[in-house]
């Protein structure tokens, strides 16, 4: 324990009391509107970068899925095995994105957007889903896609080999970029949303 017999201890005890008093008459309330304004700015940025569960993303993925399905059917119809693997890979990619964004959109409908708490919970769910998708699904999907791409183009012209290498290179760059996106964009946003929710729960 602290020594109360030391010289100046009375003065120090007074200071301790004074120090404790410095927050006695203060209370803290959440500035809900300010918090929501800040969160909304971050969410706009998140929507711009990821668009998780948004109609625009669903329409884009649906269109891609339809295009690659038709392409795949065309390859099967004309019996072009070298094209099938490539188109199947892209169709599966589009499908996985479509399922992901569709599921998130469906889950978003269960939240009541009119209350701050549920709005924050919904945004937190979107961010967590995006993190899961990027951390778990994408690393599994990428090698499969690349494997199929290589198989599909194995017998093609050298020009395609060059294109494939370019695609591979760009994909790796994107993967690298997306890792930074997770740590720089998604984790901080998730923490902010969790913290904001905690503060709302607290008050």
């Amino acid at each position: 324990m602290q020594n109360s017999d030391a010289p100046g201890s009375k003065e120090i005890q007074d200071l301790q009391q004074l120090w404790q008093e410095s927050t006695t008459n203060e209370s803290f309330t959440i500035k809900e509107r300010a918090m929501m304004t800040h969160i909304n700015k971050e969410i706009s940025n998140f929507n711009l970068l990821f668009g998780t569960g948004q109609w625009g993303q669903i329409i884009l993925d649906s269109s891609l899925f339809c295009i690659f399905t038709l392409e795949l059917l065309e390859a099967i119809w004309h019996n072009k095995p070298d094209k099938i693997a490539f188109r199947l890979a892209f169709m599966l990619t589009a499908l996985s994105f479509l399922v992901f964004h569709g599921t998130v959109k469906f889950k978003m409908r269960t939240f009541n957007h009119n209350t701050s708490r549920e709005y924050l919970q919904m945004q937190l769910m979107r961010v967590k889903q995006e993190i899961n998708f990027r951390e778990k699904t994408t690393p599994l999907l990428s090698p499969v896609i690349f494997g199929l791409l290589i198989l599909g183009f194995w017998n093609d012209l050298p020009l395609w080999s060059i294109i494939l290498l370019v695609i591979l290179f760009i994909s790796l760059q994107i993967a690298n970029f997306s890792k930074k996106l997770i740590s720089k964009e998604l984790y901080p946003l998730r923490d902010k949303l969790q913290s904001a929710l905690q503060q709302l729960n607290e008050h």
């Binding site: 008093e21 006695t24 008459n25 203060e26 209370s27 959440i30 500035k31 918090m35 700015k41 904001a196």
Partner: peptide, 18 residues
């Protein structure tokens, strides 16, 4: 831009000296 989520409501001690 600052995060300003907590509003601090201070009612100072009655005693000016404190």
């Amino acid at each position: 831009e600052r995060i300003s989520w907590i509003e601090e409501t201070t009612s100072h001690p009655e005693d000016d000296h404190t």
